[in-house]
Design a protein around this nucleic acid. Sequence first.
RNA 1: GCCGGGGUGAUGGAAUUGGUAGACAUAGGGGACUUAAAAUCCCCGGACGGAAACGUCUUGUGGGUUCGAUUCCCACCCCCGGCACCA
Length: 944
Amino acid sequence: MAKQSYPHKEIEKKAQEKWETLSLHVTDLEANDPYYALFEFPYPSGDLHIGHWYAFAVTDIFARFKRAQGKNVLFPIGFDAFGLPAENAAIKNGADPAAWTLANMDRMRTQLKSMGASFDWSKEVATCSPDYYRWTQWLFTKLFEKGLAYRAEASVKWCPKDQTVLANEQVVDGHCERCGTAVIEKRLTQWFLKITDYAERLLQDLEPLPWRQDIKEAQRAWIGKSEGARLSFSFSAGQKAEVFTTRPDTIYGATYVVLAPEHSLIDELLETVPNSIEVREYLKLTARKTERERSENKEKTGVRLEGVTATNPATKEEIPVYVADYVLGSYGTGAVMGVPGHDERDFEFSKKYDLPIPQVIAPPFKQTTEPGIFRENEPVFVNDGVITLVKHWKDDTFLALKWKKVDWGTLLTGVVDEGFTPEETVLKEIREETGYMNAKAVRSLGVVDGLFYHVPKAINKHVHGHIFYAELTDDTREAIDPEEGAKHDIVWLTKEELKDFLTPDTHQYALRTFVQGYTPYGGSGSLIDSGPFTGRDSEEVTWEIAESVGGIRETQYRMRDWGVSRQRYWGCPIPIVYDPDGKAHPVPPEHLPWLLPTDVDFTPTGEASPLASSEELRERVERLFGKGWTPEFDTLDTFVDSSWYFTRYLDSKNDLQFSDPELMKKWLPVDRYSGGSEHTTMHLLYSRFFYKAMFDLGLVPTKEPFNERFNRGLILGPDGAKMSKSKGNVINPDDAVQQYGADAIRVYLAFIGPYSEPGHYPWKPESLASIRRFLDRIYALSGKVVDAERTGSEMRALASAAHRVASDLERFKTNTAVSALMILLNAFEDEESPSKESFNDLLVLLAPFAPHLAEHLYETLGGEGSIHQQSWPEFDPSLLVKETVVIGVQVAGKTRGSIEIAPEASQEEAVAAAMELPKVAGAFPGGKPGKVIYKPGRILNLVP
RNA sequence: GCCGGGGUGAUGGAAUUGGUAGACAUAGGGGACUUAAAAUCCCCGGACGGAAACGUCUUGUGGGUUCGAUUCCCACCCCCGGCACCA
């Protein structure tokens, strides 16, 4: 039978009108069984692109599925309508930002409706509407009253092209995220929200959320918690500098102190230092650099404050003080102690300025291969030893020992006996073990710890290996103890040969240190030259050491407060006015919404915010508050608008409250929130913070706004590159809808890959065509159905599809859900004449994916109401249990065939069936396998 | 560099969490229908060998645990994402 292509345009239009008439998607917020399915509301750019489709169509599939499952689903939509593009269009074409935005919203509504998504338009919000931003302002004033909003002068990222302040996240590689212009820094008085007060809670409450690891990790990294200690260093000139360190255990290795160029102590110190001109020069230089430039050039720079020293509180040594811009003024205390032996950055700095690099922790190497694997939980014997690189008297080779009983290669080693120094031990060992008598230039290369099991002595050992270098002056040699000589042969090897020859890791370390020089070790281990703590484990005594120098525990966060001021027009006006003394006051609720003035010249001047040009605003303030009062001219970051929109959906028309508390109690937190990965550390973190602040104000019912969170992937152009106008690979969804229909696009996007994992998928027209074919086949099949009893095979196929689709959709694995539908269709096409009843169930399963086609066919077959009011078909679970299963038969783990048996068949039956297979029988001439592993319904493995 | 997530056919991706690897599709090949093409339908579809039955190999690489490993453990290589002078 020839397939006909179904008339998608007609069908889709009709179905959409039907849903509208039935008000099918208006959620009754009072009804039971709430399920809040949320997606990030779009910016009204004016054109619906394929990314929107991916975001909304696939979440719509989920929303429809949840409804079929009996949930009362809220699936709202709105517009994140403030923002730069409207203003840029205004600057460019003289358009009114408000009119431009509203026109775009109109256009997008039409496009959005063509998707056939079940959005509840009755609850639409637009952040630029005074009805909405009135509450953004109200919430801001609440935060202000709670002390969570404050003003401070800060250096901000400034885009010279957009003439605006950028959030840290909007700066990508030192360039403006939007226009790519290099960002500069500027100092302005700004409004900030105290997100740092919530750092710990944002971190703690992240833990139990059912989110993917990568999302949580990104947020954790952004918060950047470090636990450490605040230590105090006294200066020779009488001052004190506090430093923050996460490694107080390395304080015996602190050889200098660094102050950030912004450090408050510097001004005072400048008065006494003899090289103040040089220091001032340096300060000027770094001030001119942006933070970006400072970190771009990783070459460390700094200037010593001549004549000033600090006392290392542990060693009591006087150490130099530097100003260097590798220390940030904005983090910790703006001062650090330099520990070059155990910090990469301090190491670089010390090398450049020729500072000593003492080692205070020995890197440990634990033996993990035979012989001598370190035995955890057994007593450990600690002693000192030496590892010596002995250079040949003439050649550029080194003495190594090739052991006779074991396949080992080592350097010369020895135990440091009571009453001997390591240096003495070196000379002693050279003589005793090799007979060479004249060595010189003994030089220490540091310490390395070896932890291993000493097989002959049957004990765990922890040896502090003092590494030395020595040179033989000549080949004068005496006879050695034959017992010593019997253990190993002496070989002379080059550095390169040693690398292959040396067995223990500790000796490899010794060689590396000799060849490359010392490199800083940032881990833990036993302490060296650390006063009373020498020999102890650095990790164990960290806090003891901190306390011994009067340090106090402290936690630092990398996250900074959220700067929310924007020197732009098209945003929510900050609801603040200043009295004649310049003190900030919140605009009281009766004056909200605090309207965005319209008599504004929004051409950026770079000097003041566009609102400063409004006469009306100035007059308004004087009229309402009195003479001499002035307005705030900045607008809010649009991330503030979007930090609470999901609470407004619940009660979008309320003009007494931002949302109804009872409804919030019922509907929050959002059950499933889907959006783009790009919002992981901005929107998602900001809205969590904002919501928590609201929670503390008693405004919302829970401490977290979102339960599940899913980040979606990206649709690429047909060429596999990111869609962009310049590449000419942009797919216009409107065209695709014309050609294939909305349903085909929806199913295609669901099938492209798992929605639960963000992947990158090229747009493949041939694949879309195949999805359309799939829908056409369903359409064709509808002509074949008959009024008849449903068959067992139909029922089984339906039962497993219903089960599979449901469990896959639950986990957002839309691709396998579609594949289950395809399998179902394949099964139905094999039926002589599928029953109408069964086909109807197929349509219910299809309905979330292809809502228009399913609606049409449902109606054609005489269905009452809408298919989208039908509930998910339920089947007897026994239908999922197959009568027989095909299981693999293995011989010694190798597949040799398969048998079809009842899932509950006994082992005897299974073995008997397997023995029918010639290949299996052939493997057991005796007729009996030695061992049988039988997992009913899974596998039969026969082992000889 | 550090932290996460991954590497499965020509391609997108499956695999009940240790049980016949490659579901479902796409590209490709062959056939049917047709004067022909399109559409549609049927068959093949990891690699190598073989006419075939079949055999050997195969989930980034190398080891290990196990009757059995894509799945668990160790080492290494590569890709993607986040952070990056945060002490």
